[in-house]
């Protein structure tokens, strides 16, 4: 497998969407190719960083204003 083909299949591989044969060929390539392995590894880390639950946490004052707005809406609808 060539590097550009490996990179192309990386996203589907991360999602577990490759068939067994292609997956094994890609995994063999990742074992031997440092470049592609680094791309694979850092793509996984990229996703993990954005998924970090501590990021962009909801500030308490923003939450309070949301619930105030909803209660005002509720009063209007009554």
């Amino acid at each position: 497998m060539k590097c550009n083909k490996a990179i192309k299949e990386l996203s589907a591989y991360l999602d577990g969407e490759l068939d067994a044969e292609l997956r094994q060929t890609l995994e063999a390539h990742l074992t031997y190719c440092n470049h592609c392995h680094a791309v694979y590894d850092t793509t996984k880390k990229t996703i993990e960083l954005y998924c970090d639950g501590k990021l962009f946490s909801l500030p308490e004052d923003v939450r309070a204003r949301l619930h105030d707005a909803l209660r005002r809406k509720l009063q209007e609808c009554k």
Binding site: K8, L10, S11, V39, K45, T46, I47
Partner: peptide, 20 residues
């Protein structure tokens, strides 16, 4: 969706790699 996800993941990785 699949095509955009693929490109988005690799481009974000590329951007973050410059720093990390």
């Amino acid at each position: 969706v699949k095509a955009r996800l693929f490109r988005a993941r690799l481009r974000l990785r590329e951007e973050l790699s410059k720093i990390f």
